[in-house]
């Protein structure tokens, strides 16, 4: 195939302990480290491996969000993507709108495979890949832990509650990456220098002529209810006593 499209979402870094703003309007993002959503990094790694095996010729990374998302796209280029597209939009854009943006880029570029992370670790929605497959009317292979391309089909092993499910899909298709699909490569300094010369195009959301979906409104953020402070026991017999006291054994 020719082109693979990969989504890179700018999200609060995996290691940040997120705090809710005191006025409940959202979570604190000022001065907080931002990174590529970890599942998207896995998606990009898989796309790069497919290209490196000679099964595709170009990997395009796409981010939908504020201008700052250029940083994540540059990281993606340093990992090995050939070029990048930023569609400037509000960070809180709903998943169906994101899916429609992906679809617009798929049509423009003639993409045959889209690889996305299965979910973003900020909104934890787990929707965009499935929605893209729907608006594109193409197969979806979500939560992938193994991908094999064979001509015009892909064989994908999926992590499901019951175990590992394997399905076969015709291309074009959407694949979403789960944790154990691969270990993303580390970026080396010379790659960062090279990435600065790779093309990064910026588009405005309005340029794509996308119809806005009925939005879900986020009205209030609150910290989760804290669990009551527990007790420490000194040894196993203390543990057994505590469990008996609670009527659990």
């Amino acid at each position: 195939m020719e082109k693979i499209l990969v989504g890179l979402k700018r999200a609060v870094d995996y290691n940040v302990r997120v705090r809710v703003k005191s006025d409940g309007s959202g979570v604190e993002t000022d001065g907080v480290k931002m990174s590529i959503n970890p599942f998207d990094e896995i998606a990009l790694e898989e796309a790069l491996r497919i290209r490196e095996r000679g099964e595709a010729s170009e990997v395009i990374v796409l981010s939908i969000g504020p201008g700052d998302a250029q940083q994540q796209l540059r990281t993606g280029l340093a990992m090995g993507a050939d070029r990048a597209i930023l569609v400037e939009a509000d960070a809180a854009l709903d998943a169906l709108d994101r899916a429609r943006v992906f679809k617009a880029i798929v049509d423009r570029e003639g993409v045959e495979l889209v690889v996305l992370g299965k979910q973003a670790i900020d909104d934890d929605n787990n929707q965009t890949g499935q929605m893209l497959a729907a608006v594109w009317d193409r197969p979806q292979a979500t939560f992938a832990s193994e991908v094999a391309i064979d001509g015009n089909t892909a064989r994908v092993t999926r992590e499901v509650d019951a175990g590992l499910e394997t399905i076969e899909v015709d291309l074009p298709a959407v694949i979403t990456a789960d944790l154990r699909l691969n270990d993303p490569r580390y970026v080396k300094l010379p790659d960062i220098m090279k990435a600065k010369k790779k093309p990064l195009d910026t588009l405005a959301l309005a340029d794509l002529g996308i119809e806005a979906s009925p939005a879900i409104e986020e009205t209030h953020f609150a910290p989760p209810e804290a669990r009551q402070k527990g007790i420490m026991v000194d040894d196993v017999s203390g543990l057994v006593t505590a469990l008996k006291d609670k009527g659990l054994i």
Binding site: V18, A95, N125, Q127, M131, S213, E218, P223, P224
Partner: peptide
């Protein structure tokens, strides 16, 4: 339409609570 993922409580006919940021925040939508 968009989807509401992971409803943890129903607050009204169109109002729900759900966890975000790995459960570090609960948002009313």
């Amino acid at each position: 339409v968009n989807q509401i993922s992971d409803i943890m409580s129903v607050e009204g006919s169109h109002t729900f609570k759900r966890p975000v940021y790995a459960g570090n925040a609960i948002v009313t939508v």
